[in-house]
Design a protein around this nucleic acid. Sequence first.
DNA 1: CGACATCTTGACTGCGTTCAAACATGGTGG
DNA 2: CCACCATGTTTGAACGCAGTCAAGATGTCG
Lengths: 257, 257
Amino acid sequence: MTGKTRKGTRLALSGSTAFSQLRPETRDALEAMCRAKSYRAGQTVIHAQEHSGFIGCVLSGILRMQKTLADGREHIVGLLVEGDTFGRVFDGAAEFTIEAATDAEFCAFPRTKFEALMTRAPDLERAILLNITNELDRAREWLIILSNQKIAGRISGFLLLLCSRFRDIDHILQPSPEGIEVKIPINRADLAHLLGTRPESISRSLHSLRDQGVIDILEPDRILIRDTKALALAADVDEIEAISTLQDLLKNHRPEH
Amino acid sequence: MTGKTRKGTRLALSGSTAFSQLRPETRDALEAMCRAKSYRAGQTVIHAQEHSGFIGCVLSGILRMQKTLADGREHIVGLLVEGDTFGRVFDGAAEFTIEAATDAEFCAFPRTKFEALMTRAPDLERAILLNITNELDRAREWLIILSNQKIAGRISGFLLLLCSRFRDIDHILQPSPEGIEVKIPINRADLAHLLGTRPESISRSLHSLRDQGVIDILEPDRILIRDTKALALAADVDEIEAISTLQDLLKNHRPEH
DNA sequence: CGACATCTTGACTGCGTTCAAACATGGTGG
DNA sequence: CCACCATGTTTGAACGCAGTCAAGATGTCG
């Protein structure tokens, strides 16, 4: 364990986390047992195949969940952002390694204490159940995105996912007069792993989308989405809801148009 | 609803399902509310975006979980086999369509009754929680398999998955003196969808693996795995555990070697 | 036996991987 | 302040795998 630890904070469990709907007593109990931890980019939070001693809830930054392949390469199966929880409850060892993709903070609940609380607080158990249900849906959305043969399609899907899922995470989305500005929270290599391809292909497809006028590349990790409809079309998936989400976002932030 | 329904059966909840660890009272309550349903291959069990009226637990056959893309094609995100449960609890509409890939039977629990029972039977809620946790891991395993650029690698991963996850499902696995015989429970087109490719490529890769001596194609849907190590190598993922599983299987069934 | 569905094979094209090198960008130390 | 290096990103060229379309083979059922 290389991360820094400090005493639990009150503000940890507010906001739109999985725990926001809990009864006050349960939340108090959680806050009493939680310890904030901070890791620097690149550090390992939980190793695959190890019984992690805690359940975590991300406060800031990005964690990546990954599996190490036989040849030493790592493949990313998901990102954890603010409000996401990780760690297994009532079950065996973790299947995946969790690393900090950026500097990150999360609050950790000692596993045994957490499980004991779950057993006597049905609302917590219910919250965890719903949380995992959503995780499952998101994992399957990933499957759809990854199923796209064209790399540009996967990138489009990824951008749309960022817009729909991370819309209330600070520093990811930012509407502008020209469209929506998206900050890609991970570097090219990680993004390539995530989308099952290589950094070179990411670069090429991104620039191809730019040449078509769909997006603009402000900086390598800052993308301006110009044409959401074309993006959804490229993503191929039925992202009607994503489009409406995006258009809501645009309307809300620039009512002058 | 086009499937046939009949009265609940006692044997429905025995075996190694998610419900096998339940207290007798809870199991009785479940059995009292369950209705067996049978669907023919191709029929739709649950439509995406609809509130399904029930939670299901597969008794026999294969169901496929899929999403219809904007262009009308369908992409499979998972298979449901004997013992798997499906349907959402305490949450919105289903995200994916569920269809019978083969003739299939499952038992259905009315959603509201099921949820009521969950609320007063902590052991059931716990069972569901663990079940979804496992589903989540499996979905992420799929991500790893699908991330393989080479089609042959995905097929290898799929075959290994069949071996590890479906080892106690009847008619899927069968050890033989030459290796392990696997029955692929779905047709080429579905398999192609599942692996994010086309039937032609499936065929080519399968025959390529045969030419390398890794497998034998007894029939289009019956594969004999000759060289598990080479298969794991082709799958690229760290399937050490899968290999050991396979070798256990071999040893247990032919101790004469 | 013929009609149909499924699987296989072939030829061609295009996209993405690979390897290599050039190009930014940021930080460090002279 | 600038030279220098480290890291990350982009571009280029060549090859190979897989998608596509088309035709052939195989199996199944009436």
